[in-house]
């Protein structure tokens, strides 16, 4: 059963989206596909969680959007990180690593 965005830890989707576009601009579908591929088909992010997340990031000023042309020659909106977004990504990454390490320590404790 593929994972759903709703099952992710709260706030993780924002981190994943930021991470997905950190290496270059992507449109929404690109972000979803990137997450699916890199997670070995585990993370399936649907429109219903991806687009609200993207709007949230726009509102926070962490990403910016510009129109471009997609592979199939349609107009698509491409997202890139802003300077604030890059900083946010670094913090969230660190927080997440801490959190995962902590969870693992709890699980390893017999």
């Amino acid at each position: 059963m593929p994972n759903r965005a709703a099952d992710l830890l709260p706030g993780t989707l924002d981190l994943l989206v930021l991470e997905a576009i950190a290496r270059g601009r992507k449109h929404g579908y690109g972000i979803a596909e990137h997450l699916r591929h890199t997670s070995d088909d585990v993370l399936h992010v649907g429109e219903s969680s991806l687009y609200p997340a993207l709007q949230r990031l726009l509102l926070e000023g962490w990403v910016k959007a510009e129109w471009g042309v997609s592979e199939n020659n349609r107009r698509a909106r491409y997202y890139t990180l802003t300077a604030a977004g890059r900083r946010q990504l670094a913090t969230e990454r660190q927080d997440f690593t801490h959190m995962v390490a902590a969870i693992q320590r709890v699980l390893a404790h017999d």
Partner: peptide, 29 residues
């Protein structure tokens, strides 16, 4: 952030159209 919100409200129609188009592209891909 408030400024972004207000700007969004002022051009709400355009934003809605853009979101719809963006999601249509997603669907098509």
């Amino acid at each position: 952030r408030l400024w972004r919100r207000v700007r969004h409200l002022l051009s709400r129609r355009r934003h809605d159209a853009e979101l719809a188009e963006e999601m249509a592209t997603h669907h098509a891909l």
